[in-house]
Computed example of a mutant assay.
Amino acid sequence: MASKKLMKAGLAGASFVALTALLAGCASGDAPEADVSEVAVDDAAVALLPQEIADAGTLTVGTEAYYPPYEYLDADGATVIGLDMDLIKAVGQKLGLEVQIENVAFDTLLPSLDTARYDVVVAAMTDTPERQENYDFVDYFNAGQGIVVAEGNPEGITAEADLCGKAVSVLRDSAQQGILEAFNSDICASSPIEISAQATDNDALIQVQSGRAAASVSQYPVASYNVEQAGGFELANEEPFQPEPLGMAVAKDNELSAAIQAALQSLVADGTYTDILAAHGQEGGAVEEVTINGAE
C-alpha cells in the first residue's frame, strides 16, 4: 500500500495537471474567436512594409500560448487562439500577408527577434522604457495588474503593499516580475517580496495552489480569466493597479513597426478592432490611437 505521503503527492500532482490542462485551452471547443477572414487589405499600410516581408508574403509571429485570454491553445492542443491571435491575423489581412504563428517559451521571444527568427512578437507583452532600448513596441491595448490568491484569501491580501514579506509567483522575465522587483526597492524595501519566477503563468498559479506562494501577479485580464476558469482561486484586488500599454514587439528601427501601426489603426477605424476585443470580453482595454513606444 502506498504511504499517505505518496498518495497526497500523487493527488497534488493530478490537480496540477488538471489546472494546467484547464488554463492552457478550452476543452469544450467553444473558445471565443473573431472571424477576420473578410478584413480588407489596406493599401496605405501595405506600402509601408519592408520589401523583404512584402516579397515573402508571410508575417512570422512568435508567442507563448499559456496566457489566456490573449493567447492559449484550442481544444486540439496545438492551434494558438486568443485576443492577440485574432488581432495579428487581422493585421495580416490588412497587410495582405499570410500569418505564421509559433508557440515558444516566453523568455526566448525577444532574443528571437535579435536573430530574426520572427518578424514580430505578439504575446501580451508590456511596453516598457527598458525594453524600448532594444525593441520597438506597437501599442494596441492597456492592461493593469491583478493579484491571484487561494480561495478565501488566507493571507488577507487586498493591495500591492500586502505582498511585502510574502512569497509571490510570477511569469519569468515578465513586466510583472519587474514590478515586484521595483516594489522591493520601494514599498517593500524593509520587508522584500520573495519573488518566485516561473516558466509559464500556469506554473505561477501552481505555486499558489500548492501553498508555495501566497499570491501570483499577472495582467488583470489574465488574472480574471484564470479565476473564472479554475476553482480554488480568487482575485485579491477589486481594481487593477499600475496600468501599462501592451505592444507588438519588432526589431529596433524596423519599418515593419509603421506598417503594423497603420494596419492596427485601420482596424480601429473600420470597427474590426472593437469587434475582436468584444469577442473576448476585453473592451475595457481598448485604445483609440495606436502608438509606437508609448510607455513612459
Rank of each mutant, 00 (worst) to 15 (best):
V222N: 03
A116R: 15
A223M: 04
S37D: 10
V122P: 02
A12N: 15
A18R: 08
A230M: 15
Q198G: 04
A54C: 00
V149G: 07
S174Q: 05
D127S: 15
P111L: 05
C188K: 05
K8N: 14
E130I: 07
S15F: 06
G285Q: 13
T108W: 05
Q265L: 11
S224A: 11
E289I: 12
P111M: 09
R172F: 14
T60Q: 02
Q282T: 12
M125Q: 09
K89T: 08
F16C: 04
Q242D: 03
G144L: 07
F16M: 06
F106N: 04
R212F: 14
D35V: 02
D162Q: 05
E98S: 13
A278G: 06
Q265H: 02
E102F: 14
E38R: 14
D275A: 15
V170P: 10
F16H: 05
A18L: 13
D43A: 08
T115H: 08
A223D: 05
A124C: 11
S190P: 07
D30I: 01
S257F: 00
G231V: 14
L113T: 01
V149K: 11
L23A: 10
T200P: 13
V217N: 02
T128C: 03
T108K: 14
E130G: 11
E151M: 08
T158R: 08
L23T: 15
S169K: 03
V39H: 10
V91L: 02
A223C: 03
D201C: 01
S266Y: 04
D201G: 13
G146C: 13
P69L: 05
K252W: 01
K5T: 10
G62H: 14
R117P: 00
A45H: 03
T108G: 07
L83W: 08
V120I: 14
T126R: 12
S210L: 09
V268K: 07
L109C: 03
G152M: 02
V61M: 04
G285E: 00
A56I: 02
Q176G: 04
N142C: 01
S37I: 01
E155M: 07
G294K: 05
Q100G: 04
Q177P: 02
L97R: 01
E33V: 02
Y67M: 06
A259V: 00
E52Q: 11
A31T: 01
Y72T: 04
A258T: 00
E244C: 12
Q261Y: 01
G247Q: 02
L277M: 12
A150H: 05
Q145N: 12
R212L: 10
I53L: 11
D275K: 13
S191F: 10
V138M: 00
A18F: 09
D127P: 06
S257L: 00
Q145A: 08
E71I: 02
G247N: 03
E296C: 00
G144A: 06
G92W: 02
F241Q: 07
K5S: 13
A189W: 09
A159T: 05
S218D: 08
A223K: 11
F137G: 03
D86P: 03
A65T: 03
E234I: 12
G231W: 07
L22Y: 00
V168C: 15
G57P: 13
A199V: 14
Y273D: 03
A14K: 15
E181I: 10
I276F: 04
P243M: 10
A116F: 07
T20N: 07
D139I: 09
F183V: 01
A167H: 09
M248H: 05
